[in-house]
C-alpha cells in the first residue's frame, strides 16, 4: 500500500479545498491516521473507497473518542523591567485547549487485502457543535456503529438514515461513554455489602494524569 503521505497528497489533489493532516502515532503499534476536515470528509472517504489503487471497500471499525477540555501549563521566560533593571522572569502561562469528540474509521480493502487506513474526524466542540458527516451512505457497516457513537458519545451524524439511540433506552438523556459522565445515584439502588468496598476502592484510584502534563478541566459546574 502507498504511504500515508502519498494518500494525503492524492486526496488533496483530487478534492479541492480538502485539508488532510497526518496524526502521528507514537509507540510500537505505529498506526498513524488521517485527520480530514468535516466539510470534505465525505468526498475524501468516497475517494478512498473508489480509487483504483486503494479500493478501501470495507469499513471495519467505527468508534468515538472523547477528549476533554484541558489546559496546558507552561513557564515562559519573559523580559521585564523591574525597578529600572531589565530582568528575566519565569511567568506561568496557561494555554486552553478546547475539547472535542472524535470519530475514528478503520478502512480496509478486501480486494487488495491491505489496510488499515485510519480516518479521523473531529467535532468543533463537545456541546452544540458535535456534528459530523455520516459515512453510512458509503459503508453500510457504519450504520449501527454511528448510532452507537450517537448514543454513547452524543455526536450527531448528518446524513444518517436512521439516527436513534441503540444500546441505551430512548428516554435516556446523557451519553454514558463521555469522560465527564456522572452516574445517577438513583437507578436500581440496592443495599449490598459491597458498597463499603466500592467506597474504599476510590482511595486507590488517583486522578488520571493526561498525556502532556496537562490537567483535566471538569465541565461540571
Amino acid at each position: 500500500m502507498e504511504s500515508l503521505e502519498q494518500i494525503k497528497s492524492r486526496i488533496e489533489a483530487a478534492i479541492a479545498g480538502a485539508s488532510v493532516t497526518i496524526v502521528p502515532n507514537p509507540g510500537p503499534a505505529n498506526q498513524p491516521s488521517l485527520l480530514i476536515d468535516n466539510e470534505h470528509a465525505f468526498a475524501a472517504v468516497q475517494f478512498l473507497r473508489d480509487d483504483a489503487e486503494l479500493r478501501l471497500d470495507y469499513c471495519s471499525s467505527v468508534t468515538g473518542v472523547d477528549w476533554l477540555d484541558r489546559t496546558v501549563k507552561k513557564t515562559v521566560k519573559v523580559k521585564e523591567i523591574v525597578d529600572g533593571v531589565e530582568k528575566e522572569i519565569d511567568r506561568a502561562e496557561e494555554e486552553k485547549i478546547p475539547g472535542y469528540l472524535e470519530a475514528v474509521y478503520h478502512l480496509y480493502s478486501t480486494v487488495r487485502k491491505h489496510g488499515p487506513v485510519i480516518v479521523r474526524m473531529r467535532t468543533t466542540d463537545r456541546l452544540d457543535g458535535a456534528h459530523l458527516p455520516s459515512m453510512t451512505p458509503l459503508y453500510r457497516s457504519a450504520e449501527f456503529q454511528e448510532r452507537e457513537i450517537y448514543d454513547l458519545y452524543g455526536v450527531t451524524f448528518e446524513g444518517h438514515p436512521d439516527l436513534r439511540r441503540i444500546l441505551m433506552w430512548d428516554e435516556f438523556e446523557d451519553h454514558p461513554m463521555r469522560k465527564d459522565y456522572v452516574q445517577p445515584d438513583d437507578f436500581e439502588y440496592e443495599p449490598t455489602p459491597h458498597d463499603e468496598v466500592l467506597e474504599r476502592a476510590k482511595e486507590h484510584y488517583s486522578e488520571r494524569p493526561t498525556i502532556d502534563g496537562a490537567e483535566p478541566v471538569s465541565t461540571q459546574p
Partner: peptide, 11 residues
C-alpha cells in the same frame, strides 16, 4: 489483591 481485583470484591 484488593487493588488489582477487577470487580473489586475484596475488602
Amino acid at each position: 489483591c484488593e487493588k488489582e481485583c477487577p470487580p473489586q470484591c475484596i475488602y
